[in-house]
Design a binder for these strands. Structure first.
Lengths: 253, 253
DNA sequence: GATTTTCTTGACCAAATGGTCAAGTCGGGA
DNA sequence: TCCCGACTTGACCATTTGGTCAAGAAAATC
């Protein structure tokens, strides 16, 4: 699932915190000059390594992850990993870059002024919940990075994300002004939506333990989506169009 | 203000994952036999170390934290740290134990059957938000631990927390049955409350960056609390008693 | 004041870490 | 066939890691 990942490569990356804004244009390969398109082998290996890195970083954080473990998980010798990504920082940065892009999409595409709030919010929640179910690891890595101080993604937060939140706040305020929903603070509404949906990725272990499951199955995700949607729709008074809300029972199971 | 931390000491702790249930009675000092009460020096130093450890673990996670950094932050030589806590695991376990107790209190005390839902939910949200403001670090450590798979707190989750959630679900179902609020899945409602409130501790860096602040000030916390409360009260239809909801404006600021 | 116990700490150690390197293998174009 | 650049990898290295130790300084106990 997830999304098409851009053909990430390596770059001579500064401490990353310093980089300005836009999450890096296309990167340069670690060796050779090959500025153009990468060979098939390269692409395949980079992919393998990024995937493994995402998983390990998501579990241990930057400091806790070891390149050896990532290499092992990717099925390549450690030296090979360092052939594609000069440093651990580079690798971490590349993994984050791949995530950041995806992060914005759902928000950007669903919360548009033309839609009515109930539909837009419902679809957005559904999409974020699907992401928590199908690709929890990026969410976890994101969380670990932000909890740790967001040093590496500060520019992204301060620029693209801030801009997008402003933009979407206007959309929501438009809905409010049009009487389509009750007044709410748009930014805090967004924070709540992110929190409520991403918790099913980030805190999956806790939720599963409390609900006495080994993993979070589809039923739980359905119930959760329903609960959140109901609460937000009712809470914001965002009834408007039809949108056939299937009255799924949503018992605790 | 946080909570009274129990006079934590050290213990010859197994991998911690294996320990059963209840988060350890009182622990044994690392050296000597002193099973009884600890000397003042010991208590003071243990306190200093635990505090430093909480902060470092909360930023880097277990694997990423180094005992040297913790010792430096606590202002003691590393060897002294290891005098009080034999291993890093011990230290981590002790820090977690101190947090777990506090975790349950708010939930347990606010969501009682006698209260009416609007008051209870409002107070609970307020309390959790205050915790996110005044003591964000425990929340962050908790998050990192759970994201990493919750290996060390699995017993706590499976026993005490699960039990408490069941108990509180009954309270909420009671309210629903009494027509005091709309039907919701109680467990998922709780997950949402935790997510929405703790996000202001865990994701403070992101929220601050998006809102163009250096830190989250009281105004932001007030607006956030208001937004969440409104949403939950309206969303669950938990109007009942008076509860003079001061109609604070809650603009984005 | 003597003795025993608790505490303090610099020096030390084996293991793990991020990263390098040089000597290769491979595959495709001339 | 030869060549050349892309890829592979075991061996290696300096640094950091968690943890120990022994010898001494302070407290507590008598």
């Amino acid at each position: 699932m997830a999304a098409k990942r851009k053909t990430a490569q390596t770059i001579r990356r500064q401490p990353a915190a310093d980089r300005e804004a836009e999450p890096a244009g296309d990167n340069l390969p670690a060796n050779g000059s090959n500025g153009g398109q990468a060979g098939a082998i390269r692409r395949r290996n980079v992919e393998k390594i990024l995937k493994a890195a995402e998983s390990v970083f998501a579990k241990k954080g930057f400091a806790g992850a070891s390149t050896a473990e990532i290499a092992r998980k990717a099925g390549v010798p450690k030296a090979n990993l360092h052939y594609y990504f000069r440093t651990k920082q580079d690798l971490y940065g590349s993994v984050l870059d791949a995530i950041l892009e995806v992060w914005l999409d759902a928000l950007d595409e669903e919360l548009v002024a033309e839609a009515d709030p109930a539909t837009a919010l419902g679809n957005y929640i559904a999409r974020k919940m699907a992401a928590s179910r199908d690709a929890p690891e990026p969410s976890r890595l994101w969380a670990i990075e932000v909890i740790g101080g967001a040093r590496h993604v500060q520019p992204f937060l301060r620029n693209r994300l801030r801009r997008l939140v402003k933009e979407k706040s206007l959309v929501i305020e438009g809905w409010i002004a049009a009487g389509k929903m009750k007044p709410v603070d748009p930014a805090h509404l967004l924070f709540m939506l992110w929190a409520a949906t991403q918790t099913y990725a980030d805190f999956a272990a806790q939720i599963a333990a409390v609900l006495d499951r080994k993993t979070l199955d589809d039923g739980i995700f359905a119930a959760a989506t329903q609960t959140i949607t109901d609460l937000v729709i009712n809470g914001t008074g965002a009834r408007q169009t039809l949108r056939p809300v299937r009255a799924r029972a949503a018992r605790k199971a």
